[in-house]
Computed example of a mutant assay.
Amino acid sequence: MKGVNVQIMGQSLVVASDAGDEWVKSVAETVDERIKAIRAGTQTVSSINLVILAALNFADELEHLRREHQELMDRIEAMNKRLSAAIDGDPS
């Protein structure tokens, strides 16, 4: 596993990952952009607070996506059951 050099908040970091270099750079860029957006919208100057707010922001987004994913999976399962029943000739 090799390291990829990225910049976040002006800090150079080497990130070890099995993902490709472009993926790692893209993720780091997303994190850096989110921190910059938070910095622009708040009076917080502490780097730690900015990073915590960014982490909370990402966690919130992730939880919403997880719930949306589960709802979609539930809908697909229900549709699959209805289709199977229709194919088998079961009117319920």
Score class of each variant (00 low, 15 high):
residue 37 A to F: 08
residue 45 V to S: 09
residue 58 F to L: 10
residue 4 V to Y: 08
residue 20 G to D: 14
residue 9 M to P: 08
residue 35 I to F: 00
residue 59 A to E: 03
residue 6 V to M: 06
residue 35 I to Q: 03
residue 48 I to H: 11
residue 16 A to K: 14
residue 9 M to W: 02
residue 5 N to S: 12
residue 5 N to I: 10
residue 36 K to H: 09
residue 27 V to Y: 00
residue 35 I to E: 02
residue 57 N to K: 07
residue 25 K to P: 04
residue 31 V to M: 02
residue 25 K to I: 04
residue 19 A to P: 05
residue 45 V to W: 00
residue 27 V to C: 03
residue 40 A to Y: 02
residue 50 L to F: 03
residue 29 E to M: 10
residue 18 D to H: 13
residue 15 V to M: 03
residue 6 V to N: 06
residue 35 I to L: 05
residue 33 E to I: 08
residue 23 W to K: 10
residue 45 V to T: 13
residue 54 A to W: 01
residue 32 D to Y: 00
residue 7 Q to L: 14
residue 25 K to V: 05
residue 54 A to P: 08
residue 38 I to Y: 00
residue 31 V to T: 02
residue 39 R to Y: 06
residue 17 S to H: 06
residue 53 L to F: 05
residue 54 A to H: 01
residue 16 A to P: 10
residue 59 A to M: 08
residue 25 K to R: 13
residue 8 I to C: 05
residue 26 S to N: 09
residue 33 E to K: 13
residue 37 A to P: 03
residue 54 A to I: 05
residue 45 V to F: 01
residue 41 G to D: 12
residue 17 S to V: 08
residue 14 V to F: 03
residue 32 D to C: 04
residue 10 G to K: 05
residue 35 I to N: 04
residue 7 Q to W: 07
residue 32 D to W: 00
residue 47 S to K: 11
residue 51 V to S: 08
residue 52 I to A: 15
residue 43 Q to S: 14
residue 55 A to D: 02
residue 34 R to G: 04
residue 31 V to A: 08
residue 42 T to E: 03
residue 16 A to Q: 13
residue 14 V to A: 11
residue 45 V to I: 09
residue 9 M to Q: 12
residue 11 Q to T: 10
residue 28 A to Y: 01
residue 46 S to L: 08
residue 59 A to S: 14
residue 26 S to T: 10
residue 26 S to M: 08
residue 46 S to G: 10
residue 27 V to W: 00
residue 37 A to E: 15
residue 18 D to S: 15
residue 30 T to W: 01
residue 29 E to Y: 03
residue 59 A to V: 07
residue 46 S to R: 08
residue 14 V to Q: 11
residue 51 V to G: 05
residue 18 D to P: 13
residue 56 L to T: 10
residue 32 D to L: 02
residue 23 W to E: 10
residue 9 M to F: 07
residue 43 Q to R: 12
residue 55 A to R: 04
residue 23 W to R: 12
residue 11 Q to P: 04
residue 33 E to C: 09
residue 25 K to A: 07
residue 34 R to Y: 01
residue 35 I to P: 06
residue 5 N to W: 01
residue 50 L to K: 06
residue 43 Q to Y: 07
residue 45 V to R: 12
residue 14 V to G: 04
residue 57 N to A: 07
residue 29 E to S: 13
residue 50 L to V: 08
residue 26 S to Y: 04
residue 7 Q to D: 14
